[in-house]
């Protein structure tokens, strides 16, 4: 494992921890999109179907369990915890996320590396992950006062994607036959979706001002 991949996994892990910290300690999910969180839970559930069949490393299995467990518990918190669900901005979080599910699934049926159940589900998870942040970005744009933890959460998610691209570039030059178009293109699309957010995040950081996205 190279440094970019490790750093990418760690920022991904940190993003989840920041979100759980916010929800668990402040008992608030203000500014967090349940739609995006549900999509991430579906992403992990469909991607990690191999968790009990293909063993890669203890690290790999543990991380998969952490991402599965955390994504489902975040959804549980927002839907079921009586204090947390009260802080959920239901009226702002209106993105119709099921409109993303069907096109991603059809695309996975059409464009995949092998037409098997596991492979199609894995490809579906990549396409869905690429666009899963959209409801969250829309919600951020509607939120007047983005709190620091929410801003950091989205920043860490974007950093994770950027680091994965560096990891792929590194692996392309150091490993023979390392060409994977489907994860690369969907990963690139995913990272580009964060570009606008990053711009305003750094501007607010540079000017020492509160983060606010233009509507």
């Amino acid at each position: 494992m190279n440094i970019f991949r490790l750093a990418g996994d760690m920022t991904h892990l940190a993003s989840v921890l920041v979100l759980l910290l916010k929800i668990h300690t402040i008992k608030s999910c203000a500014g967090i999109s349940l739609k995006t969180q549900e999509l991430f839970a579906i992403v992990f559930a469909s991607r990690y179907l191999d968790i009990f069949t293909d063993f890669i490393s203890l690290y790999n299995t543990l991380m998969k369990l952490i991402f599965l467990g955390s994504s489902f518990s975040i959804v549980w918190y927002i839907r079921r915890h009586k204090l947390v669900r009260r802080s959920y901005d239901k009226d702002q979080d209106t993105f119709r996320h099921y409109f993303l599910l069907l096109p991603c699934f059809i695309l996975a049926l059409l464009i995949n590396e092998k037409f098997t159940f596991k492979e199609v589900m894995w490809t579906f998870s990549l396409y869905l992950e690429a666009v899963a942040i959209l409801p969250q970005l829309v919600l951020l744009q509607r939120t007047k006062n983005i709190d620091n933890l929410t801003g950091q959460y989205v920043f860490l998610l974007g950093a994770y994607r950027g680091l994965y691209i560096l990891n792929w570039i590194y692996r392309y030059f150091t490993e023979p036959h390392y060409v994977h178009w489907i994860p690369w293109i969907s990963g690139l699309v995913q990272t580009l979706l964060y570009a606008d957010f990053f711009y305003y995040y750094f501007e607010s950081w540079k000017n020492n001002k509160k983060l606010q996205l233009p509507a």
Binding site: D54, I56, K64, F67, P183
Partner: peptide
């Protein structure tokens, strides 16, 4: 030909 894809990423 391409080798089997390593699903070693998360």
């Amino acid at each position: 030909q391409s080798p089997p894809k390593p699903k070693d990423e998360l």
